[in-house]
Amino acid sequence: MFTCPACRAASIALVADEGEDDDDATFLQWVPQKPPVKEYPDSVPKAIAAVAGEAHSSLLVGNVQAAVLMARTTVEATAKAKGITSGNLVAKIDALYAQRLIYEHVRDAAHEVRFAGNDAAHGDLVDDPISAEEAESIIELMDMLLEGVFIAPAKTAAQAAARQTRKNASPTASVNGTVPSSP
């Protein structure tokens, strides 16, 4: 067992023992072969979940600038998935807010991701690179956007459907399927 120098996670080297001397062992592979990928619920479109997962994986192995760029890409892809395709990213984020798809603090979070992503994309990091800690914060802000746009609405809809199903199955439900109103 070893510790990955980039992400500090445990790694196992599989070797074939071909003799009594340690020098006779043959390296086969590392386990895991890839860094773990963050999983998102099905409510997040697959392509967006893949890019957001890439942001997490990049951060995990120490590729800070790549992580921030993928976070910015996730923000833009999220707006496009909601039909907001015109204008620059500032306008797209503001449109998400104007259409009440996100709260004000999530709008501000998306803009912070945009600022960091723009710095990385335009090479404005030569003298002042983004730290791993700042990149981690940017990834968390990206996840706030995904939570607000895709995950929380899906959870809310699922809960509402479960409540309605429960009410419809209730012995107090009327014959025509309507439920008497609650007090």
Score class of each variant (00 low, 15 high):
Met1Trp: 08
Phe2Leu: 14
Arg8Ser: 11
Arg8Glu: 09
Ala9Val: 02
Val15Trp: 02
Asp21Ser: 08
Asp22His: 05
Trp30Ile: 10
Trp30Asn: 00
Trp30Gln: 06
Val37Trp: 08
Lys38His: 11
Lys38Val: 05
Lys38Tyr: 05
Lys38Phe: 13
Tyr40Leu: 06
Val44Pro: 05
Val44Ile: 06
Lys46Pro: 01
Ser57Phe: 11
Ser58Ile: 04
Leu60Gly: 13
Leu60Ile: 09
Val61Cys: 02
Val61Gly: 07
Val61Asp: 01
Gly62Ala: 08
Asn63Thr: 07
Asn63Lys: 04
Gln65Phe: 04
Val68Glu: 00
Val68Arg: 02
Leu69Val: 14
Ala77Ser: 14
Thr78Gly: 11
Lys82Pro: 02
Lys82Gln: 15
Thr85Val: 15
Gly87Trp: 03
Gly87Thr: 03
Gly87Val: 12
Leu89Tyr: 05
Ala91Trp: 02
Ile93Pro: 05
Ala95Phe: 00
Leu96Val: 00
Tyr97Gly: 08
Gln99Phe: 13
Arg100Thr: 14
Leu101Ile: 13
Leu101Cys: 01
Tyr103Lys: 14
Glu104Val: 09
Glu104Thr: 09
Val106Trp: 04
Val106Phe: 04
Asp108Ser: 09
Asp108Met: 08
Arg114Met: 10
Ala116Glu: 04
Ala120Gly: 09
His122Asn: 08
His122Arg: 05
Asp124Lys: 15
Leu125Tyr: 04
Val126Trp: 10
Asp128Gly: 07
Ser131Arg: 01
Glu134Ile: 07
Ser137Ala: 12
Ile138Thr: 11
Leu141Asp: 05
Gly148Arg: 00
Pro153Asp: 02
Ala154Asp: 05
Lys155Asp: 07
Thr156Asp: 07
Ala157Pro: 03
Ala158Trp: 03
Ala158Arg: 12
Ala162Gln: 13
Gln164Ser: 12
Thr165Ile: 10
Thr165Phe: 10
Asn168Met: 12
Ser170Gly: 07
Pro171Thr: 13
Val175Asn: 09
Gly177Trp: 10
Thr178Cys: 05
Thr178Lys: 13
Thr178Phe: 07
Ser182Thr: 14
